[in-house]
Amino acid sequence: MRVRDENKELSIRERAVEMLVAEGFDGLSMQKLAKVAGVSPATIYIYFKDRDDLIIQLWVGEMKRMMHATLEGFDPNMSFEEGLKVQWLNRAKFYIENPATAHFMEQIKYSPYYEKCRGKIDKKFLNAMGEFVHNAIKRKELVKLPLEIYWAIAFAPLYQLVKLHMSGRGMSGLEKFELDEKTMNQTLKLVIKALRP
C-alpha cells in the first residue's frame, strides 16, 4: 500500500509553483518536477491524476492559503473601515511574503485553467466577504455598488501598490518604492472616503 506523505506532497506543490512561475505552463512536466522535488514520477501521480489536475489542485491549495491569510483576525461584523484595514494588511502581507504564489495566481487568471478553477473557490470565503459588505451597507458605512465597481475601488489600489512594491520601483522606474504602513493608511483613507455613502 502506498502511503500519503504530506511533506512529499508539500515539496511537490512548492516546486511545481516555482517551475510554473519560472518556465510557464509549457515548462512544467511531471518528469522535470519529479527530478527537482526529489521524488519519482510515480509518486507525483499518487497525489495528482495528471498534469491538468496538478495545476488545478495547485491553484485550489494556494487559494486556500490566501483565503486563510486574508481572514486572519477578520470578522464580517467589523466596521467597514476596520474590516477593510484588516483585509488590506492581510492581503498585502500574504502577497509580499509569497511572491511565487502571487505570480502563479495571475498566470492562472489569464489562462484557460481559470474557468476550471474558479468554480472551486471556497464558498465560506465568498460568504464572509458578502456578509461584510452587506453589513456595511446596512449600517450606511458603504455605498451600494455593483460588485465589480466595489472591488475595483476597495482592492485594486492595494494590489497596484503591492505590485509596485514587489517590483521595487516607483512609477518613474528609477526611484525605489516600498509599501509601508503609512503609504497604505494614506491610500486606505482615500478608498474609504470614496466608498462612503
Binding site: S29, M30, Q31, P41, Y45, K49, D50, R51, D52
Partner: peptide, 13 residues
C-alpha cells in the same frame, strides 16, 4: 482510471 496523454510515459493511473 485515467491516462496522462501529456506525459512522455503516457502514464496510466
Amino acid at each position: 482510471w485515467n491516462v496522462d496523454r501529456e506525459d512522455v510515459d503516457h502514464v496510466l493511473r
